[in-house]
Structures are given as structure tokens and as C-alpha cells.
Design a protein around this nucleic acid. Structure first.
Lengths: 233, 233
DNA sequence: CGCCCCGTTGACTCTCGTCAACAGACGTGG
DNA sequence: CCACGTCTGTTGACGAGAGTCAACGGGGCG
């Protein structure tokens, strides 16, 4: 591929050559913008651990995950990190208030996204109540997630946090109870407000209690009833 | 006052008698709905510790604090509680996604609010991009607050949490550095993910370090530079 | 006056963090 | 092909910070 193209250059190129129809219908969830045919995203790729945008950067684009996974986080000056969310296939991220990002976003693995320019969407929102309502609905969904995380971090033990997290991820992967975690122990720890050692020990405890089984790689099989019992309410 | 009127009955009465102009201009911050003259709230009062709405209840109204203070929280089945936000004069609360509240809201002290019906506002949003954009903006502001709290709960020590909290409250009271906390130690603890004993001890530590002074009641005077130093980043 | 609630403090406990060692997977280069 | 380093994950020993339990003082209110 030679030198890495920027989102901007990819967008410019896409304007002249992309067969727009081919971008949709590729299996990602319908949702925001699904009924806005003029808001077609430009495909783009990021390598594992590559930064998509940084905190404080100009928020020129928003993104929808097509394949792979992304994390959003904030860091303190001494390096402590809090991941505020994982974005899996189908989810939209990077849409924040104001003109700069207040998080850093990085690809967990090689990831394909669709890129949208933020400005035209915001301009559309000022004219179309429908678009604005979709943005509102999206923000509200994110708000609920953030507040659930707040309850998790403020009032739950390590076991409860990990159990709730695994149930949540399972749900996002279709609820089969078996999946491969796309993130490292460090990512899980920084999401749950724990250390990697505690996450690792808690995995072992849950396995001893028969609430899950670990296989090679990051494959896990959940005993969902027992995990739910750990989480209770 | 005899039997307590419901918001519903107050609203019905207000339709026939309230001199609408008198409600506004009473010193609360301008903001959402300020430019929607047809969305006039009905005044209503709650006593200290009174529940305004409960988790799972039908979300018929939204509220703006005129005077006093309100807390929103969630509880786990075993009684552990996480306060997700305090609402002081001027702030709007109760606007959540879906038809039911996902929090409980209670008055910290005797509190005056303006009540708005949710449905007409939502209906207005589907027609007016401006209203919808305001709702979006409000949700996004709440989202940022929730994510800041996430970072606080996930990665900060008791001292850092309390210092950040005091700076935040000071800011909301005008940034003079001296004010009376409207909430109890229990409320602070349940907001910061700590216990009341830890909050109390942390107050004492910060006072020993000269970062604040406590006076009678819940009056505090902050040494803001030292508190900011505790929080650093 | 007496009760209850709030806040503070002390003593002890326990969960989770810290520091360290080590095993397995993977990629690189000799 | 294998030695090597690196990265991820696991486990153990120990320590620190926050939680738990308990006592007590002060203020508000019936």
C-alpha cells in the first residue's frame, strides 16, 4: 500500500470513483443513516493498535465499524487509562459534542470502517428533524451505556464487573455463549477499572466456579445462568 | 397544604389559571426551551427526600430545577446505590430514552421545579429540527458528564474523587470557592463510589493538608489551587 | 428533654493493587 | 531450523487503600 493514505485523501478519491451502492448491503446492522441515502460512507481501514483519532483532535469525521473492533478511551497524565466503550461491527462512534474529540479511538484489531464527514451530517440535522432525532436517539443510547458503566464501576466487585462484561459482549456477538474476545486483558482491565492481574484471577475464579470455560486464544464459553447469578440484579 | 397534589393535577390546574409570563425570568439559566415560548413549564414543589419519579415508571414529564437540588440514582437489589448525577438550579432532568425512566429522582432539599410534558416536546422534535438539535445537544452534554464520572470511578483514588467533586460543585455554584453542600455524606459517597466513612476521612485529610476548611453545617471553603493539584490532569 | 439523624473517628478486615516470576504464542533473524 | 526477544496471560506473595463494624458527639425537632 505504500504510504498510509489519510481519511481525507481516501474521501477525495472516493468522490470520483466509488460505486456508491456497493458500500451498503454489506451485512452491517441497519440503523442511523440507513435511510439517508445521500450520507454514504467512504470505506477505510486501520491496522491493529492504530490510532483512529486522538483526544483534542479536530472532529472532522465520524465512523461506523464494518469489521473488527475499536476502543474509545481517556488517559490521565500519569498513564492511568479508562476505556469508555468498545465499538463492534455496526456501531457508530466519533460523534461528540463540539468540534474536537474528547476521546482517543484505536483499532483493537485490523478494522474496516465507513467514514462520514461530520459537518454535512450536522448541517443536515439543522434542517431535518428526522436526522436530528436519530442523532438524539444515538446520544441517548450512549448515555444509557455510560450510566450503566458508572453503576458497574462505582458499586460492583471485580467478579460482578467481569461477569456483567462477558454477558454484555456475548449479547453483542449474538448471544450464543461462545465467542473470542476481541480485546486484551489490559483493555478489559481498563474498561472495568481493574488491573490485568485482577482480571486474570477473576477469570480463573469464574472458571473454577463453572461459570465459564477458557479455550485457546481468547475463546470463551459462558455458563450464562451462572454468570447472571453472579451479577444478580 | 392538605393532600399532596400530583404533577398531573397541577398541570391541569395550571392550564386554566397560571399567568404564564410569571414563570420565566426567575433567574434560572437560559438554555434548552428558552426559545420555545410555547413550552412553558408548570411550577411544582417537592419536599426534602421526596421521590420525584422512580425507575421503571412511565416517563410522562421532564423537569427543570428552579430552586433546590435533585439527585438521580440507580439501586441494586441488595441496596447498593449509585447516584449518576446531581441537578442544581437551571438544569433539566428526566429526559431519557424510551417511555420509562431508567433512574429514580429525589429532591435533596425542598425543591421547586418546572414540569413539562414529555410527549409534546418529543412531538415537537419530530417536526422541528431546532428542538431536536437542542435535545441532542442536551443528551450529548449529559453523555460527557457521565463519561467524566466513569473516569473518576474507574481510575481515581478517594482523595482525587472528592477533590474533583468539590471543584465541580464549586463551579456550578459560581466558582467563589465557598458554598454549602446541598447533599449529605451518603449522597456524596454514593456519587463517588465510596462509603460515608471514607468520604468523611477524606474530608479530614484534605482539611489537614490545607486544601479546604469546613465550617458549621455543610459549609466549605476550598483552597482551589491545592485541590486542583490533588486532581492534577 | 430525649430521640434520631448526620458526621467523625478508631480498630480491624478484606479486596484489590503491586511487584515479581514464569509459561506459551508469535515473529524475526541468524 | 532453532535461538532469541517480545508480548500476553497466569499465578504467587505481599502491601495498601478502602470497607466494615462500632462508638460517640452535636444539632434539629417533636
Amino acid at each position: 500500500m505504500g504510504t498510509k493514505p489519510t481519511p481525507r485523501s481516501a474521501l477525495a478519491a472516493a468522490c470520483s470513483r466509488t460505486p456508491l451502492r456497493s458500500i451498503h448491503g454489506s451485512g452491517h446492522r441497519t440503523g442511523l443513516f440507513a435511510d439517508c441515502p445521500d450520507l454514504i460512507g467512504t470505506p477505510f481501514s486501520y491496522a491493529r493498535e492504530e490510532e483512529i483519532y486522538g483526544e483534542g483532535e479536530d472532529a472532522e469525521f465520524v465512523y461506523r465499524v464494518v469489521e473488527g473492533a475499536v476502543r474509545s478511551h481517556k488517559v490521565l497524565s500519569d498513564g492511568r487509562r479508562q476505556i469508555t466503550g468498545f465499538h463492534l461491527a455496526g456501531s457508530l462512534f466519533g460523534f461528540e459534542q463540539g468540534d474536537v474529540h474528547w476521546h482517543t479511538a484505536e483499532a483493537l484489531s485490523d478494522t474496516k470502517v465507513l467514514i462520514f464527514q461530520r459537518r454535512p451530517i450536522e448541517r443536515a440535522a439543522t434542517h431535518s428533524a428526522e436526522v436530528a432525532c436519530q442523532l438524539w436517539s444515538m446520544a441517548t443510547a450512549n448515555l444509557r451505556d455510560a450510566q450503566d458503566l458508572t453503576l458497574l464501576l462505582g458499586r460492583r466487585s471485580a467478579q460482578e464487573r467481569l461477569a456483567a462484561f462477558l454477558i454484555e459482549v456475548d449479547g453483542r456477538f449474538g448471544g450464543t455463549g461462545t465467542f473470542a474476545l476481541p480485546m486484551t486483558r489490559r483493555d478489559i482491565a481498563d474498561y472495568l477499572g481493574l488491573t490485568i492481574e485482577t482480571v486474570s484471577r477473576t477469570f480463573s475464579q469464574l472458571e473454577e466456579e463453572g461459570a465459564l470455560r477458557r479455550a485457546s486464544g481468547r475463546q470463551v464459553t459462558l455458563h450464562r445462568a451462572r454468570l447472571r447469578h453472579v451479577v444478580e440484579t
